[in-house]
Design a protein around this nucleic acid. Structure first.
Lengths: 124, 124
DNA sequence: ATCTTAAGATTACAAGTGTAATCGGATTAT
DNA sequence: ATAATCCGATTACACTTGTAATCTTAAGAT
């Protein structure tokens, strides 16, 4: 399996935009993230550059601008991050993690039903 | 609420020792972590020092050595980390996180029953 | 009284991160 | 043609992190 580049927190924000809408330009990302208005445009461009260097993003030139696209899927990154999180904080024990999240976070009645459904389906 | 120092991954390993056994000496930690033999003793001392500076550990002198102890609970740190993880990777949506973990990680039949129990208890 | 030892304190240093400004070349407007 | 603009590339810089060696000082050994 291809080995994933490691994506930092700030970079993750940027990746999310590309995962949601691949073949975006740098400006698309800047727009997409402008609501939160957390970063200067230059910052976002820096992050995009790093992601390209890390091999997390590819691009093709379209006229004068680049259209960037993810080279790694959100699924696999999420998987990897989640796994390392589980390992690091809960020593790899899934149940305590789940218990913790179940206890402290918000769930609707429907969510709960759905989760029980999932639990039922995975017998073992 | 007291604001938590931010504890890095390597530091977390060290904190775990103190959470498990408060009032440990630096050498206790070195011993405790020597199985994994990942770090030189000097490294562990560095980490302890940083944790003291960050306000994550306190200590009292006992004869010639220091007995260190956590100034923050594992519970609150876990809580904070988990929350930020949830926010960062899943945009704060608990269900996708749970679904992901439920789908990909290992659970025994008993675990599953227990989780369903928890779900039942928290009607909403 | 000295010498050794061991503990905490200080210093080191490269890599990664957050955050951003500036440079250089191409494109568009005048 | 020339000037203004825009975009990606390069450079910047402080802070954190991983990893560890060295320094200082006090206690214990001889």
């Amino acid at each position: 399996m291809k080995q994933l580049p490691r994506i930092s927190q700030a970079e993750w924000q940027v990746m999310k935009v590309f995962w949601t809408k691949p073949l975006s330009t740098a400006n698309d990302v800047i727009d997409a993230l402008s609501d939160d208005a957390e970063w200067k445009p230059a910052t976002i461009k820096s992050l995009i550059n790093r992601l390209v260097k890390k091999g997390a993003l590819g691009f093709k030139q379209e006229g004068k601008v680049y259209l960037y696209y993810p080279l790694v899927t959100e699924e696999e990154c999420l998987q990897a991050e989640s796994k390392s999180f589980l390992q690091r904080l809960y020593g790899g024990a899934l149940k305590p993690l789940l218990v913790n999240f179940l206890k402290h976070e918000d769930l609707t009645k429907e969510d709960i039903e759905e989760l029980k459904q999932i639990l039922n389906e995975r017998k073992s």
